[in-house]
Protein backbone atom coordinates (compact mmCIF):
# COMPACT_ATOMS: atom_id res chain seq x y z
CA UNK A 1 0.00 0.00 0.00
CA UNK A 2 2.82 2.38 0.94
CA UNK A 3 4.71 1.52 -2.26
CA UNK A 4 1.56 2.15 -4.32
CA UNK A 5 1.13 5.57 -2.71
CA UNK A 6 4.77 6.51 -3.34
CA UNK A 7 4.43 5.51 -7.01
CA UNK A 8 1.30 7.64 -7.26
CA UNK A 9 3.15 10.59 -5.72
CA UNK A 10 6.04 10.19 -8.17
CA UNK A 11 3.61 10.12 -11.11
CA UNK A 12 1.89 13.28 -9.88
CA UNK A 13 5.23 15.08 -9.42
CA UNK A 14 6.39 14.00 -12.89
CA UNK A 15 3.13 15.21 -14.43
CA UNK A 16 3.47 18.53 -12.62
CA UNK A 17 7.05 18.96 -13.87
CA UNK A 18 6.05 18.21 -17.46
CA UNK A 19 3.11 20.64 -17.26
CA UNK A 20 5.24 23.38 -15.69
CA UNK A 21 7.91 22.76 -18.33
CA UNK A 22 5.45 23.21 -21.18
CA UNK A 23 3.98 26.32 -19.59
CA UNK A 24 7.38 27.90 -18.90
CA UNK A 25 8.65 27.27 -22.41
CA UNK A 26 5.42 28.79 -23.68
CA UNK A 27 4.57 25.50 -25.43
CA UNK A 28 6.91 26.77 -28.11
CA UNK A 29 7.52 24.77 -31.22
CA UNK A 30 10.99 23.30 -31.67
CA UNK A 31 13.44 25.81 -33.08
CA UNK A 32 14.59 23.44 -35.80
CA UNK A 33 11.01 23.09 -37.12
CA UNK A 34 9.72 24.61 -40.31
CA UNK A 35 8.66 27.83 -38.64
CA UNK A 36 12.03 29.59 -38.53
CA UNK A 37 12.86 29.17 -42.24
CA UNK A 38 12.39 32.10 -44.65
CA UNK A 39 8.96 31.85 -46.25
CA UNK A 40 10.25 31.90 -49.83
CA UNK A 41 12.50 28.92 -49.05
CA UNK A 42 9.65 27.11 -47.32
CA UNK A 43 7.37 27.62 -50.32
CA UNK A 44 10.07 26.39 -52.72
CA UNK A 45 10.74 23.31 -50.56
CA UNK A 46 7.03 22.56 -50.27
CA UNK A 47 6.43 22.87 -54.00
CA UNK A 48 3.35 25.04 -53.71
CA UNK A 49 2.22 28.34 -52.25
CA UNK A 50 -0.43 28.52 -49.50
CA UNK A 51 -2.70 31.57 -49.78
CA UNK A 52 -5.29 32.55 -47.21
CA UNK A 53 -8.48 33.93 -48.72
CA UNK A 54 -12.25 33.99 -48.32
CA UNK A 55 -15.07 32.45 -50.32
CA UNK A 56 -18.04 34.73 -49.73
CA UNK A 57 -17.25 38.06 -51.40
CA UNK A 58 -17.93 38.87 -55.00
CA UNK A 59 -15.86 39.72 -57.10
CA UNK A 60 -12.89 39.18 -54.80
CA UNK A 61 -13.15 35.56 -53.72
CA UNK A 62 -16.26 33.48 -54.30
CA UNK A 63 -17.44 30.13 -55.65
CA UNK A 64 -18.56 30.02 -59.27
CA UNK A 65 -21.51 27.89 -60.43
CA UNK A 66 -19.30 24.80 -60.51
CA UNK A 67 -18.14 25.39 -56.93
CA UNK A 68 -14.64 26.52 -57.95
CA UNK A 69 -12.99 29.32 -55.99
CA UNK A 70 -12.60 32.33 -58.29
CA UNK A 71 -12.16 36.10 -58.03
CA UNK A 72 -9.62 38.91 -58.20
CA UNK A 73 -7.84 37.83 -54.98
CA UNK A 74 -7.58 34.29 -56.37
CA UNK A 75 -5.96 35.68 -59.53
CA UNK A 76 -3.43 37.57 -57.35
CA UNK A 77 -2.51 34.29 -55.65
CA UNK A 78 -2.03 32.71 -59.06
CA UNK A 79 0.22 35.59 -60.15
CA UNK A 80 2.51 34.90 -57.17
CA UNK A 81 2.48 31.14 -57.87
CA UNK A 82 3.37 31.84 -61.50
CA UNK A 83 6.25 34.04 -60.36
CA UNK A 84 7.65 31.33 -58.08
CA UNK A 85 7.00 28.14 -60.03
CA UNK A 86 6.07 29.34 -63.52
CA UNK A 87 2.77 27.53 -62.93
CA UNK A 88 -0.44 29.23 -61.74
CA UNK A 89 -1.81 25.93 -60.40
CA UNK A 90 0.94 25.52 -57.79
CA UNK A 91 -1.13 27.27 -55.18
CA UNK A 92 -3.39 26.02 -52.41
CA UNK A 93 -6.11 28.36 -51.14
CA UNK A 94 -7.05 28.16 -47.49
CA UNK A 95 -10.57 29.50 -46.97
CA UNK A 96 -10.79 31.69 -43.88
CA UNK A 97 -13.25 34.11 -42.34
CA UNK A 98 -12.20 37.80 -42.33
CA UNK A 99 -11.33 37.70 -38.61
CA UNK A 100 -9.00 34.72 -39.17
CA UNK A 101 -6.81 36.65 -41.61
CA UNK A 102 -4.22 37.84 -39.08
CA UNK A 103 -4.31 34.79 -36.73
CA UNK A 104 -3.81 32.40 -39.67
CA UNK A 105 -0.73 34.36 -40.72
CA UNK A 106 0.72 34.62 -37.23
CA UNK A 107 0.23 30.90 -36.57
CA UNK A 108 1.92 30.02 -39.87
CA UNK A 109 -1.13 28.43 -41.46
CA UNK A 110 -0.72 30.44 -44.65
CA UNK A 111 2.25 32.03 -46.46
CA UNK A 112 0.33 35.11 -47.53
CA UNK A 113 -3.22 36.46 -47.39
CA UNK A 114 -5.06 37.91 -50.37
CA UNK A 115 -8.48 38.69 -48.95
CA UNK A 116 -9.47 42.30 -49.80
CA UNK A 117 -7.46 43.38 -46.79
CA UNK A 118 -7.31 47.10 -46.12
CA UNK A 119 -3.90 48.45 -45.24
CA UNK A 120 -4.24 50.33 -41.95
CA UNK A 121 -1.74 51.60 -39.36
CA UNK A 122 -3.31 49.37 -36.69
CA UNK A 123 -2.88 46.29 -38.84
CA UNK A 124 0.62 47.32 -39.89
CA UNK A 125 1.64 46.88 -36.26
CA UNK A 126 0.74 43.21 -36.47
CA UNK A 127 1.44 42.13 -40.03
CA UNK A 128 3.42 43.37 -43.01
CA UNK A 129 1.59 44.52 -46.13
CA UNK A 130 2.65 44.42 -49.74
CA UNK A 131 2.26 47.45 -51.98
CA UNK A 132 -1.44 47.96 -52.79
CA UNK A 133 -2.89 45.93 -55.66
CA UNK A 134 -6.22 47.76 -55.73
CA UNK A 135 -7.67 50.97 -54.31
CA UNK A 136 -11.19 50.27 -53.16
CA UNK A 137 -13.90 52.74 -52.24
CA UNK A 138 -16.86 52.25 -49.98
CA UNK A 139 -20.29 52.62 -51.49
CA UNK A 140 -23.80 52.30 -50.12
CA UNK A 141 -26.04 49.57 -51.45
CA UNK A 142 -29.81 49.94 -51.08
CA UNK A 143 -32.61 47.40 -51.47
CA UNK A 144 -34.57 48.14 -54.67
CA UNK A 145 -37.88 48.00 -52.81
CA UNK A 146 -36.63 49.87 -49.74
CA UNK A 147 -37.54 53.22 -48.16
CA UNK A 148 -34.67 55.14 -49.77
CA UNK A 149 -33.67 55.30 -53.40
CA UNK A 150 -30.45 57.29 -53.24
CA UNK A 151 -27.79 58.64 -50.89
CA UNK A 152 -29.44 62.08 -51.07
CA UNK A 153 -32.67 60.61 -49.67
CA UNK A 154 -30.72 58.97 -46.84
CA UNK A 155 -29.04 62.29 -46.01
CA UNK A 156 -32.39 64.08 -46.07
CA UNK A 157 -33.93 61.47 -43.75
CA UNK A 158 -31.04 61.82 -41.29
CA UNK A 159 -31.31 65.63 -41.44
CA UNK A 160 -35.03 65.29 -40.69
CA UNK A 161 -34.13 63.47 -37.48
CA UNK A 162 -34.99 59.94 -38.61
CA UNK A 163 -32.92 56.95 -37.50
CA UNK A 164 -30.80 55.50 -40.26
CA UNK A 165 -29.03 52.17 -39.81
CA UNK A 166 -26.11 51.19 -41.99
CA UNK A 167 -24.89 47.60 -42.03
CA UNK A 168 -21.16 47.16 -42.51
CA UNK A 169 -18.53 44.42 -42.45
CA UNK A 170 -16.78 44.22 -39.09
CA UNK A 171 -13.42 45.90 -39.47
CA UNK A 172 -10.84 47.94 -37.58
CA UNK A 173 -12.52 51.23 -38.35
CA UNK A 174 -16.08 50.19 -39.33
CA UNK A 175 -17.78 52.51 -36.81
CA UNK A 176 -15.61 55.43 -37.93
CA UNK A 177 -16.33 54.70 -41.59
CA UNK A 178 -20.08 54.77 -41.02
CA UNK A 179 -19.81 58.15 -39.27
CA UNK A 180 -17.76 59.51 -42.16
CA UNK A 181 -20.39 58.35 -44.64
CA UNK A 182 -23.41 59.66 -42.74
CA UNK A 183 -22.90 61.41 -39.42
CA UNK A 184 -25.16 60.13 -36.68
CA UNK A 185 -26.15 56.94 -38.49
CA UNK A 186 -26.25 53.76 -36.43
CA UNK A 187 -23.72 51.10 -37.45
CA UNK A 188 -24.62 47.43 -37.39
CA UNK A 189 -21.43 45.40 -37.79
CA UNK A 190 -21.45 41.89 -39.23
CA UNK A 191 -18.74 39.26 -39.46
CA UNK A 192 -19.43 38.43 -43.07
CA UNK A 193 -20.34 40.48 -46.11
CA UNK A 194 -23.15 38.01 -46.87
CA UNK A 195 -24.74 39.00 -43.56
CA UNK A 196 -24.60 42.67 -44.56
CA UNK A 197 -26.78 41.85 -47.58
CA UNK A 198 -28.99 39.71 -45.36
CA UNK A 199 -29.41 42.71 -43.04
CA UNK A 200 -30.71 44.92 -45.85
CA UNK A 201 -32.77 42.08 -47.37
CA UNK A 202 -34.55 41.64 -44.05
CA UNK A 203 -34.92 45.41 -43.42
CA UNK A 204 -32.66 45.33 -40.36
CA UNK A 205 -30.61 48.04 -41.99
CA UNK A 206 -31.56 50.82 -44.39
CA UNK A 207 -28.35 50.55 -46.36
CA UNK A 208 -25.22 48.46 -46.52
CA UNK A 209 -21.76 50.01 -46.62
CA UNK A 210 -19.76 47.63 -48.76
CA UNK A 211 -17.04 47.74 -51.34
CA UNK A 212 -17.98 49.72 -54.39
CA UNK A 213 -16.76 46.88 -56.59
CA UNK A 214 -19.28 44.50 -54.97
CA UNK A 215 -22.11 47.02 -55.29
CA UNK A 216 -21.43 47.55 -58.97
CA UNK A 217 -21.39 43.80 -59.52
CA UNK A 218 -24.58 43.10 -57.56
CA UNK A 219 -26.55 46.07 -58.92
CA UNK A 220 -25.73 44.96 -62.45
CA UNK A 221 -26.50 41.27 -61.75
CA UNK A 222 -29.67 41.75 -59.72
CA UNK A 223 -31.22 45.17 -60.47
CA UNK A 224 -34.57 43.96 -59.10
CA UNK A 225 -32.99 43.51 -55.66
CA UNK A 226 -30.23 46.08 -55.23
CA UNK A 227 -29.42 49.60 -56.33
CA UNK A 228 -26.29 51.70 -56.04
CA UNK A 229 -27.01 54.75 -53.87
CA UNK A 230 -24.48 56.84 -55.73
CA UNK A 231 -22.25 57.40 -52.71
CA UNK A 232 -18.57 56.71 -53.21
CA UNK A 233 -15.79 57.61 -50.88
CA UNK A 234 -13.41 56.43 -48.27
CA UNK A 235 -10.57 55.23 -50.48
CA UNK A 236 -8.65 52.34 -49.02
CA UNK A 237 -5.77 50.31 -50.32
CA UNK A 238 -5.93 46.55 -50.50
CA UNK A 239 -2.63 44.80 -49.95
CA UNK A 240 -1.40 41.28 -49.43
CA UNK A 241 -0.66 40.57 -45.76
CA UNK A 242 2.40 38.66 -44.60
CA UNK A 243 4.19 37.90 -41.36
CA UNK A 244 6.49 40.71 -40.26
CA UNK A 245 10.24 40.29 -40.18
CA UNK A 246 10.68 38.23 -43.34
CA UNK A 247 12.03 40.97 -45.60
CA UNK A 248 13.08 38.57 -48.37
CA UNK A 249 9.49 37.39 -48.77
CA UNK A 250 8.02 40.90 -48.50
CA UNK A 251 10.44 42.25 -51.13
CA UNK A 252 9.71 39.31 -53.40
CA UNK A 253 5.93 39.82 -53.21
CA UNK A 254 6.29 43.57 -53.75
CA UNK A 255 8.50 42.98 -56.76
CA UNK A 256 6.07 40.51 -58.31
CA UNK A 257 2.99 42.70 -57.72
CA UNK A 258 4.71 45.84 -59.02
CA UNK A 259 5.84 44.03 -62.15
CA UNK A 260 2.37 42.59 -62.75
CA UNK A 261 0.83 46.07 -62.55
CA UNK A 262 3.43 48.03 -64.48
CA UNK A 263 5.97 45.75 -66.16
CA UNK A 264 6.59 42.69 -68.26
CA UNK A 265 3.87 40.55 -66.64
CA UNK A 266 1.19 43.30 -66.94
CA UNK A 267 -1.12 40.99 -68.91
CA UNK A 268 -1.70 38.74 -65.90
CA UNK A 269 -2.99 41.68 -63.85
CA UNK A 270 -4.85 43.33 -66.76
CA UNK A 271 -6.65 40.10 -67.67
CA UNK A 272 -7.76 39.56 -64.07
CA UNK A 273 -8.91 43.20 -63.87
CA UNK A 274 -10.92 42.92 -67.06
CA UNK A 275 -12.50 39.66 -65.94
CA UNK A 276 -13.67 40.83 -62.50
CA UNK A 277 -14.09 44.61 -62.85
CA UNK A 278 -15.13 44.71 -66.50
CA UNK A 279 -12.56 47.35 -67.42
CA UNK A 280 -9.70 46.86 -69.86
CA UNK A 281 -6.63 48.62 -68.48
CA UNK A 282 -4.16 50.24 -70.89
CA UNK A 283 -0.78 48.68 -71.60
CA UNK A 284 1.81 50.33 -69.29
CA UNK A 285 3.45 53.28 -71.02
CA UNK A 286 6.97 52.86 -72.36
CA UNK A 287 9.48 55.33 -70.95
CA UNK A 288 9.15 56.69 -67.46
CA UNK A 289 7.84 53.86 -65.23
CA UNK A 290 4.06 53.97 -64.85
CA UNK A 291 4.06 54.35 -61.06
CA UNK A 292 5.96 57.64 -61.26
CA UNK A 293 3.57 59.31 -63.68
Amino acid sequence: MKIKKSIQKIIVILLAVVTMGSVLTGCSAPANGTIGKPTLQKVLDRGHLIVGTGSTNVPWHFKDASGKLVGFDIEMGKIIATAIFGDPTKVQFVEQSPDARIPNLLTDKVDITFQFMTISPARLQKVAFSIPYYTEGIGLILPTGGKYKSFKELEAAKAAGKDVTIAILQNVDSAKSVQEILKGAKDDQYGDQGLVYQAIDSNRADAGAVDLSSIMWLASQQPDKYINSGYAGHPQNYGAAMRTGDQIWINFINGVLLDSMTGATYQLYNNAYAKYFGVQLPVPAIGKPAMFH
Binding site: N57, K63, E95, S97, G194, L195, Y197, Q198, S202, Q222
Partner: peptide, 27 residues
Protein backbone atom coordinates in the same frame (compact mmCIF):
# COMPACT_ATOMS: atom_id res chain seq x y z
CA UNK B 1 -16.53 25.33 -38.15
CA UNK B 2 -17.51 27.81 -40.87
CA UNK B 3 -15.46 30.40 -38.95
CA UNK B 4 -12.23 28.50 -39.52
CA UNK B 5 -12.99 27.97 -43.18
CA UNK B 6 -14.58 24.51 -43.25
CA UNK B 7 -17.10 24.58 -46.09
CA UNK B 8 -19.93 23.00 -44.13
CA UNK B 9 -23.58 23.85 -44.72
CA UNK B 10 -23.55 27.35 -43.24
CA UNK B 11 -20.42 28.50 -45.09
CA UNK B 12 -21.75 26.91 -48.30
CA UNK B 13 -24.96 28.90 -47.83
CA UNK B 14 -22.93 32.07 -47.23
CA UNK B 15 -20.98 31.41 -50.42
CA UNK B 16 -24.21 30.97 -52.38
CA UNK B 17 -25.70 34.11 -50.81
CA UNK B 18 -22.60 36.06 -51.83
CA UNK B 19 -23.04 35.09 -55.48
CA UNK B 20 -26.83 34.88 -55.79
CA UNK B 21 -28.36 36.98 -52.98
CA UNK B 22 -31.58 35.37 -51.68
CA UNK B 23 -30.16 35.04 -48.18
CA UNK B 24 -33.42 34.08 -46.52
CA UNK B 25 -34.14 31.25 -48.96
CA UNK B 26 -30.69 29.71 -48.55
CA UNK B 27 -30.74 29.95 -44.78
Amino acid sequence: LSLIGVSELLLTANQLVATNGNALSYY
